[in-house]
């Protein structure tokens, strides 16, 4: 039992951190520009594929830096020549633009790298166990992923709170027009933030690719969950996104770990549900991947501004 709890916690935290890396960029973009970027997970996928191709020439570590930079540059271009053009037509048009972009990126990835998954793996020395607990290995790579996520979180916090650019971004989050009136180049700031957000997503892709899988469907499956994190966390709140990511990560892993069905849960609460009926039979493990969406709907009904957000979306 203890080992289950320990490993579920470790797994939940790891998954949560990966989610946070993905969603932190989206939170910045969303709160500043009001754009819920549907293609955000596609940039995550591009990060993984770029790192795979670059890694064949440079190795894992340089690719870890180069791939996000490339994707970030690509993201800036998308903002400059795509989103900015559409911006004049309102938020719905922007959302539709990113929706179409996700389609196109997914197809282009298939065109370049094929329809089957690619063999993007972590370097072999990282496959060794970092430690072994109750006979279960925990690989070095997983440790590295946690370390990178934490470093990124600290760097992001420093950037936003302690630098001049960070101050501008924070100001633009809440008082975009005022920042413009003060003579700052807000469009350029938008472009930078969009590119930066995409680069963060790509970083998540570089480490998420070997951890999960690098295949053309990787964006489509993770995309909606990232939205959930941003909305549940609350608009404009990185802290909220952080808690939401961890919450979803832990919730999913523990739902899987607990061996109980809906009937067990409800009957423990005093209800009388047939454990072999079609509803009672459903196990919590089955519901695990649905938890983000259940959470999303509940939050939007009962607390629309999210866990830590100040404004309603």
């Amino acid at each position: 039992m203890l080992e289950l709890v320990i490993f579920s916690t470790l797994n939940g935290v790891l998954y949560g951190l990966l989610l946070f890396m993905l969603s932190s960029g989206l939170t910045l973009i969303f709160s500043m520009m009001g754009v819920l970027n549907f293609a955000h997970a596609s940039f995550y996928m591009l990060g993984a594929y770029f790192a795979y191709t670059l890694g064949m020439y440079t190795g894992f570590w340089p690719a870890l830096i180069l791939a996000p930079l490339l994707v970030g540059a690509l993201g800036s271009l998308v903002e400059r020549f795509g989103l900015r053009r559409v911006h004049a037509n309102g938020h719905v048009a922007e959302l539709l633009f990113t929706f179409g972009l996700a389609y196109v990126i997914d197809e282009l990835v298939q065109m370049v790298w094929g329809t089957v998954a690619v063999a993007y793996r972590e370097p072999s020395y990282m496959r060794e166990p970092l430690f072994t607990l109750f006979g279960t290995d925990y690989s070095i790579f997983r440790g590295v992923v946690i370390l990178i996520s934490i470093l990124m979180f600290i760097a992001l916090w420093y950037l936003l709170k302690k630098t001049r650019v960070g101050m501008m971004i924070r100001a633009a989050l809440t008082h975009g027009e005022m920042v413009g009136h003060l003579g700052h180049n807000v469009p350029r700031l938008f472009m930078g933030v969009f590119g930066f957000g995409c680069a963060l997503a790509a970083l998540a892709g570089v480490i998420g690719g070997p951890l999960l899988a690098t295949e053309p469907g990787m964006a489509a499956t993770l995309g909606p969950i990232v939205f959930v994190v941003v909305v549940v966390g609350g608009m404009g709140s990185l802290q909220g996104a952080f808690y939401a990511s961890l919450l979803i990560g832990l919730l999913q892993t523990f739902f899987v770990a607990i061996d109980a069905s809906l009937a067990d849960v409800f009957n423990a609460l005093g209800a009388n549900l047939d454990p072999y009926g079609e509803v009672g039979r459903i196990s919590l493990a089955t519901l695990a991947p649905m938890t983000p969406f259940i959470l999303l709907v509940l939050i939007l009904i009962f607390r629309p501004r999210g866990l830590m957000g100040e404004l309603e979306p």
Binding site: N11, L14, G217, V256, A257, A285
Partner: peptide, 17 residues
């Protein structure tokens, strides 16, 4: 165990079990 079709990205909790 049953897990949802093509939705799970991280199977480690199942492996722990």
């Amino acid at each position: 165990d049953f897990h949802p079709l093509a939705k799970v990205k991280d199977f480690t909790p199942y492996i722990s079990k």
